[in-house]
Nucleic acid binder design. Structure first.
Lengths: 273, 273
DNA sequence: GCGACCGTCTCATTATTTGAGACGAGGTTT
DNA sequence: AAACCTCGTCTCAAATAATGAGACGGTCGC
């Protein structure tokens, strides 16, 4: 399959292009060409052409006055398709709504992407939502409830890969900072069926998370309820576990049903806007 | 039926890869390899390797049981960066909130991408939002308020390009279906400073839109208020024009201020989630 | 068991990417 | 002002990576 795992970068021209895309996205602001150059191993001309091609494809935008590059809007249309087709969010929406209304705390829906937590949807009580500002966001897996809940239900090879991708950055005094500790925690999570975040990512923030699994145990994503220590204890959160588990089960069921429509019902013209 | 948009490859390997990405996204559902093959001019092996590379990069996902491909989650993280950096949405958010609260109708924020309208944010009164389900969505420019408002403020070469990209599909009896008609309409829009959608996209749906322009007249995007004929008339909508214009001006001002921060501030660590 | 289809893979050919360096336009320093 | 940078852009021979006809083995339907 994949020929040889280059330390980074990846396969062929496309891999390089995506690496550049990531590089640009990694800066939180429009970047100059020279800044990219400083961060990249590619020679000047190569990087230049790469950036130019990406710009011409709309994956990057180039502010010609300011001479800066930023991720392009075309990514948003593609991401919209990804959100629709590859994420749990469309299917999970009603269940998230219900859950958020029932419990009155923040609810997250996440999936695993390259060893990281990718949030695909979110509900904040009484606060109108913020679209892309939350969906698409990524976070660490080793210190979040959804992250650990998902890692706990990977099979061995996938888990090894994912663990190797963790930064183990210490966000708070409670953060688990090594692979052994994480694996121990994951075993416990697997045993009890849910994961806590004990202020491991942010001080004062705790959460309980459950995995979303198919009937045959394949990992789809995770669901969490977040609160603050001032308002709730871990024991409080634990009482929510049944509700979470049920919502997760419903999401899994709907996903499986939705992903395998009877072959009769295919191609329908859908409306836009 | 599904996307036919044959951008005929474009430049180099990257162009082909993006074309495949678009092709996959164009189907509204996971697709088999053979389906892609039927829609693509690339020979079997070429398409195969392309798809495989994209999958290995996470831009596509491959459901190995079902043997289908779908856009990958990695697109969402990239799009999140695009949303943050290249779209007006983060800056416009408070203004959209205010506008939506003031007027009690649906508000759209859009930008132009490849001649199409790309919605980057939206407010629906009293309805919690839906994240990616709306942002990232694309629509036609020739028959929407935001589309026409933006086209009207392009310079000649950009306008020519954009007009050439229109499908001029007749959505309703009121849709403008040819370039000449559209250009006439655009002249009028330019003169009066706002655009109507007179049930041109969907029967019963009308809207008023204004462009968002920089101080020097460069087009940034557009802002619209949508309603239904049962509730409001075009004349009603026209009374909202001043409020819209002011919101647009504020968004433009904030955008210009935000895009040119004093050079003192470099890389700062930001919080996640 | 037969035939058709499908996804995967090979390998010589070819086209595309590569990258050191040239170049000119600003800006800054001396 | 002249000399000196730095930056973005572009060129061209060399080399690498993409190409695509066709082979291969599996699966499904009959």
């Amino acid at each position: 399959m994949n020929a040889q795992q280059a330390p980074q970068g990846g396969d062929g021209t496309i891999g390089k292009a995506v690496a550049v895309l990531d590089l640009v996205a990694g800066f939180r602001r429009p970047v100059r060409f020279s800044e990219l150059r400083a961060q990249s191993d590619y020679p000047k001309a190569t990087l230049y052409r790469l950036v130019q091609t990406l710009t011409s494809q709309g994956l990057l935008t180039h502010d010609s006055e300011r001479q800066t590059y930023a991720p392009g809007l075309r990514l948003m249309r593609l991401a919209h398709a990804a959100w629709q087709q590859a994420s749990l969010a469309p299917v999970a929406r009603p269940h998230l709504d219900r859950l958020a209304a029932e419990i009155c705390e923040t609810v997250h829906l996440a999936q695993l992407d390259a060893g990281q937590v990718l949030y695909v949807d979110k509900r904040v009580p009484e606060q109108p939502v913020e679209m892309f500002s939350q969906a698409g966001k990524v976070g660490p897996a080793h210190c979040t409830g959804v992250g650990k809940a998902m890692l706990a239900h990977l099979d061995a090879p996938a888990l090894d890969k994912a663990v190797a991708l963790q930064s183990f950055y210490r966000f708070t005094p409670h953060t688990i900072t090594d692979a052994a500790g994480l694996r121990a925690e994951l075993a416990e999570i697997r045993a009890q069926g849910f994961a806590f975040d004990r202020e491991e990512h942010e001080p004062g923030i705790i959460c309980i998370a459950v995995p979303i699994l198919t009937g045959r145990g394949r990992l789809l994503g995770a669901l969490s309820v977040t609160s603050v220590t001032a308002r709730k204890s871990l024991a409080d959160l634990e009482t929510l576990a049944p509700a979470l588990r049920e919502a997760a089960a419903r999401i899994a069921r709907d996903t499986e049903a939705w992903r395998f429509p009877d072959p009769g019902a295919a191609r329908e013209g859908e409306k836009d806007v």
